[in-house]
Amino acid sequence: MPAALAAVFLVVPLVALVVDTPWSDLWTLLGTREVRDALRISALTSAATVGICVLVGTPLAWLLARVDFPGRSVLRALVVVPLVLPPVVAGVALASALGRNGLVGGTLRDLTGLTIPFTMTAVVIAHAFVAMPFFVLAVEGAFRSTGAGYDAVAATLGAGRWTTFRRVTLPLALPGLLAGCALAWARSLGEFGATITFAGNFPGTTQTMPSLIYTELQGDVEVARTLSLILLLVSVLVLGAMRERWLRVP
């Protein structure tokens, strides 16, 4: 009974969205420049976010799972903080650090004249900040559950540290790694609060799909609804494809 309640609660809003959306506007909207810009920016930034997570998040997850060093639990706790942080707060924190008068951003501006806010880089930074914890937790879990035993065997067989990581550790953790990618990607695609607070909102540079939906909500609710449906379809399609190929539940 509670299970049914939860299922209904999760499904009804999505059904309402699908039923309530003027489907006929879908193609016209997809043809407009604003929507295509927002889709492109969402696609680019979410892909870049996953890339950054894989490149720097994987080593961090490995460190947390496999290396015993002082302060490990403190580091793990710190890494998880953005997970529970309200996104708007994340945006404010990023602006304090990387805004053009921020702790780091101010120095950067003095040295190079570069500023981060209002650029696509800012969008990716905001997304990576909120998505990274999801990725690191998923991958750390995978590294943990595969165990260090296989690594030790590989090492006794003469494999170096890098070879062991590449040929043994990574393949074993692959399902967890892909799940982490899917989580990070979904989080990035839906990210709104940190983005609009830190990166701003301009079509063609920083306006992602959620920002465009929020903007349209103040103008034309029907358009906002149709755009929401597009985003829903994209998410379901991509997650469906990933599930088919990699995340098959036994």
């Binding site: 806010p117 209002f118 609009i196 701003g200 909102n201 301009f202 079509p203 920083t206 306006q207 929020y214 903007t215 103040q218």
Partner: peptide, 15 residues
């Protein structure tokens, strides 16, 4: 072009 389109006037002022 402006650098950003803020959702209300106080957000512009704050920036």
């Amino acid at each position: 072009d402006p650098a950003s389109l803020e959702t209300d006037v106080k957000a512009v002022l704050a920036k």
